[in-house]
Design a protein around this nucleic acid. Structure first.
Lengths: 225, 225
DNA sequence: AAATAAAATTAGGTTTGTCTAATTTTATTT
DNA sequence: AAATAAAATTAGACAAACCTAATTTTATTT
């Protein structure tokens, strides 16, 4: 299929690797190893090594044993476009089709691979050029630029301070449904009442309501501002 | 990937075969042979034979040397759902994203494979439950029922009669762009002025304008009422 | 009916992306 | 530094979906 040879055209697998590598590259200072990629994609390091070779040949990534895997400018461009499409489709599914935020990730995971020169831009326009997706992640613009991602977590907060939920790190429906049950969404105000030093559990007040206790892991998956 | 084993889940290829068989089954009285399927999918009869075995094992089609390939009730249900999704997405692309009708087929060809229990129904609702897609093909309802497809072509008309363009058979951008140039769309009124007996060319008047001559093949790809 | 043409099928390959098991390289402990 | 553990890599398989070439079956002519 000669179509696949056209610049900017990648297989489904290639796109998923680029996305995984992009995601891993967001944790600054962390080396991107074959094992890390394999864990991220829930596949085998041996498979990753094969794909690293393929993507290196295609000049989408670079691999240096010392510094690990990195995206080339071309690979970054492709990865950001996939992320752009993913996040735009999430907005569409939530705002236009009425899905809840715990249902959209997996569908967007498929929609993001649909490739057409103008589709993302048309969708962006149709949605009114949203800045953030329903999970609080910034949506890359057509030129690749985007607002800075939130990085301070609820677990990083000082006891006694207030914050606004800005984004969620984990987008699994298990986590999002838990948030729904706790009545936490983007924009919710949380007060950190106490940190339990034994296991770093967090005692919080959601929108000024009675106190609730959540785990450290929970706190690390809520991004605040 | 155990996910693929769930009922109603088919591979991309399987879905394309089901769709092709469904399309061929619309020409009533025509036997669906491996060669016909291969032509429709532009692939090799040997490949088709492999897939016929696979789909037969999965009880999605039945194959009888005398009568050819047919969809089982289960296969029909899957095929109709794919067609439903395709046509709904076409409406979306045209009406919401502003594409022209010659650009939407190929994109819908990808979107149609996205499978989620409620996606098609939500999209249907969002679009206002359209009856026909932008090419005039009826959109199957959630229950599988749909308006009858148009079947009379411009070439079938009697000389001197008027008709309204109801649908197009060929959805290739080459054909659709030609129609755009001729100023023909769904709803256009055409008068059949004369049939040239030599090669069945058609002399027509579009929306009452000056006469134009088109080929027999052209006329056979315009469905009218 | 025999000859020919067309269609269907089988046999054996190829590519993509995955896997397991074995091996080699690198990193971490002791 | 040697021993051990972990990570990376290679080697060899496999499934899906396709292919070509050869063969068999079916249909059409003469």
């Amino acid at each position: 299929m000669f179509v696949k040879e056209l610049s900017g055209m990648h297989t489904l697998s290639e796109e998923n690797y680029l996305k995984a590598i992009y995601r891993l590259s967001q944790d600054e200072g962390v080396k991107i190893t074959p094992t890390a990629i394999a864990e991220s994609l829930r596949n085998n390091p041996a498979s990753v090594v094969d794909m690293i070779r393929k993507l290196t040949d295609k000049q989408l990534i670079a691999y240096d044993k010392k510094s690990g895997v990195s995206l080339t400018p071309q690979g970054l461009k492709s990865a950001v476009l996939i992320v752009r499409r993913h996040r735009l489709w999430e907005v569409f599914l939530l705002e236009k089709l009425g899905y809840h935020w715990d249902e959209i990730h997996d569908i967007a995971e498929e929609l993001e691979h649909i490739n057409d020169t103008t589709l993302a831009d048309r969708l962006d326009k149709f949605l009114g050029f949203p800045e953030y997706d329903p999970h609080g992640d910034p949506i890359p613009k057509a030129n690749g630029k985007m607002a800075k991602a939130y990085s301070v977590t609820l677990a990083d907060m000082k006891t006694g301070t207030n914050c606004r939920v800005a984004a969620v790190r984990d987008t699994s429906s298990a986590f999002l449904q838990y948030l729904l049950k706790l009545d936490i969404g983007i924009g919710t105000t949380i007060t950190l009442v106490e940190k339990i030093s034994f296991d770093n559990s967090l005692v919080i007040s959601i929108n000024g309501a009675a106190n609730t206790t959540v785990s450290q892991k929970f706190g690390e998956n809520i991004l605040v501002e």
